[in-house]
Design a protein around this nucleic acid. Sequence first.
DNA 1: ATGTAC
Length: 472
Amino acid sequence: MELIKSGINRYLLPKQGKMKVNCYIYATEKLAAMIKKDNSLRQLTNAASLIGVVEPVCGMPDLHQGFGLPIGGVMATGGPNALISAGAVGMDINCGVRLLRTELHKFDLNEECVKKFVEEVQKKVPTGIGKGGSKSKVHRHIFQKVLLKGSRVLVEEGFGFPEDLTAVEENGLLEGADIDAVSKLSLSRGESQLGTLGGGNHFIELQEVENIEADDLAHHFGLFPGQITVMIHTGSRGFGHQICTDFCRVFLQAAPKYGIELPERGLAGVPVDSPEGKEYFAAMAAAVNFAFANRQLINWDIRGVIKKIWGIKGELVKVVYDLAHNIAKWEHCRGDTVLVHRKGAIRALPPKHPLISSIYKKTGNPVLVPGTMGTSSYIMVGTKAAEETFFSVNHGAGRVLSRRAAWKSISGEEFQKSVQGIYYGKRSYRELVDEAPGAYKDIDEVVKTLADRNMVRIVARLRPLAVVKGKD
DNA sequence: ATGTAC
């Protein structure tokens, strides 16, 4: 597939065949070469062939093949033919990241309390998939309320502070959720999973601020050099997964009725105003709210751990920000209101944007980009130039090896070397190798791609000290 | 990502 260079770190995949709009891929030369190796460009052109799609379909520098839309894909739809696609949001609805900041400095930590942190978090937060990872401590009536009202419910129930809510995308609530739109199976899978981490790439990481690149912004975000932070990466667990599965089936069956031609099964979509489209949106919103609340509850557990180990009050552990990686939302961009599907992409609103939470009006919303379990994470902010991607930027490093390939090609020795100095508890090579840094692209290069285009500004870099991961 | 498959 031919990519035409089109400005700094940007390639045009021109409209051809059944495509209705152009695609843009954001990559350095090196990253573009990686992106060409899997099926992700084909998937972007398929998305660009859907009815009602708005130009351009975007591929982020961490782009890689997924189900339907690739991970790192952004697809907006609009106008009378606006389509909604469950596959273009992804299986893990509102998979996302929350960052906490403490008043601790790295000099306040020693090896012993870093280990203690991991042990205590493992004790408090259920991890892994299936039964072990699904022992929620909140009552069923809270679960149902959460689906409709988001993370606010947990604050009301005593699992957070009102201040937490102002530091969450959409204040932790996507309006329009409806429990009747959610299958019984989703509800039964979800009700025991609020406050659980999951497996795969989900994690809780203890970090230090290793470098600050924009003093003014870092100061506004409450960050200082050497500071200890905690990053939470998780989503809507089996609840969102089941909703995606349910509606992919519904959409696949309903699409012909609306005269929608599907370039591939994973992109199955229906008009957003159709009964099926409305029902999916209502179910997706419930999963979005579940995931915001999931991170809020884990946040609360971490406050407990920090208090136990360092004696620091929960109020002094603040939320920097919390945002979604997998979501579809109506957003205002370039004089239009469009339904932005982000699948492995983050919203990065520039300063003064009307949708930004008041606390970040002056700076733009913090953009949290996790690295891998062995490499640093980044905090950035979007600029006005991010308008060309519907204010979306890359969400992580992006896989370069599949799980199987990682297991086959990364040796125990290589794995150990790549996570040296990072405490990850009593987890084996076998359990973690598919998350090895070597299975991912170079986060520094990925982040630099959009920074060099001035679509983002780098604020700070966070170095991992310890990580809690679930068993698969 | 995920009761890793219907």
